[in-house]
């Protein structure tokens, strides 16, 4: 049995794996990654070895193997759907687009430094509109058509949204427009890499129904696994 640990910047995810997921757990990393790692190890005992991935992967001192989250996502995607050609991961701090073939990374891109195209963007806007993330996602589903938000910068986007509200535009359309702008940014990051279907959508962003809906407008063949948070941990465990 293998323990796959994905030490992310916000959550630490762990799965016990032997051909399939036996047991799983998610804990807040909360600036104390080492404690989170220990807690995951205690909760999921009975493993023979650990494979670690994610931002804090090097902190797993007794790991048998360490892999980057990019390779782990690629492998993990095949657990859910062996046909997947592209993985889109929208995380809290960054976003990745990974092209895969037979569970291996062919190419990948990541966004640089900026919050545009990440979960952070959504969080900031939701905060500015005084909405919880759940409310934000639910409202996006009510929209008829998205408003166009052109600003990539979260600060400028706030101003833009404010003026749309003043123009009397519907709030759900504005919110869906925000989701749409994130996806357009993802398209931009992908650039010449291209996004080939079927697409597996994961990371914290995949928990937001607004983003899923927006993504589906461009790529009908998307697939959101129920355990989308665990793709990295599962993938790591599979890289024995």
């Amino acid at each position: 049995m293998v323990l796959g640990i994905d030490v992310g910047s916000i959550y630490t995810k762990g799965v016990l794996f032997e051909g399939k997921v036996i047991k799983k757990i998610v804990l807040r990393t909360a600036y104390k990654p080492k404690e989170a790692i220990e807690a995951v190890k205690n909760a999921l005992s009975g493993y023979e070895k650990i494979i670690a991935t994610g931002y804090g992967r090097e902190l797993v001192a007794d790991a048998y193997k360490i892999v980057t989250e990019i390779s782990a996502f690629a492998r993990g995607a095949t657990y859910f759907n062996p046909e997947v050609k592209t993985v889109i991961d929208i995380g809290g701090q960054d976003s990745k687009i990974i092209k895969i073939k037979n569970g291996r990374v062919v190419k990948f891109v990541m966004n640089d430094r900026c919050a545009a195209g990440t979960g952070n963007f959504i969080e900031k806007i939701a905060h500015a509109l005084n909405l919880s993330l759940e409310e934000f996602g639910a409202m996006a589903l009510k929209s008829e058509k998205p408003e166009t938000i052109d600003s990539l910068c979260v600060v400028m986007a706030e101003t833009e949204i404010l003026s749309l509200i003043q123009e009397g535009k519907k709030i759900e359309d504005i919110i869906f427009g925000v989701c749409d702008s994130v996806i357009r940014r993802i398209n931009g990051i992908a650039g010449p890499l291209g996004i080939e279907e079927p697409v597996l959508f994961c990371g914290g962003g995949a928990l937001n129904p607004g983003l899923v809906r927006a993504l589906r407008r461009y790529y009908p063949e998307i697939f959101v696994p129920e355990e989308s948070q665990f793709v990295g941990a599962i993938g790591a465990a599979m890289m024995e």
Binding site: Y55, V67, T68, I70, S71, R104, V105, V106, M110
Partner: peptide, 20 residues
């Protein structure tokens, strides 16, 4: 990046590039 700006994220990308 600017001086002293090579981050964990850049290292991750390099490592993933190697893994690929």
């Amino acid at each position: 990046p600017a001086p002293f700006g090579i981050t964990q994220q850049i290292k991750t990308r390099l490592e993933a590039f190697v893994e690929a």
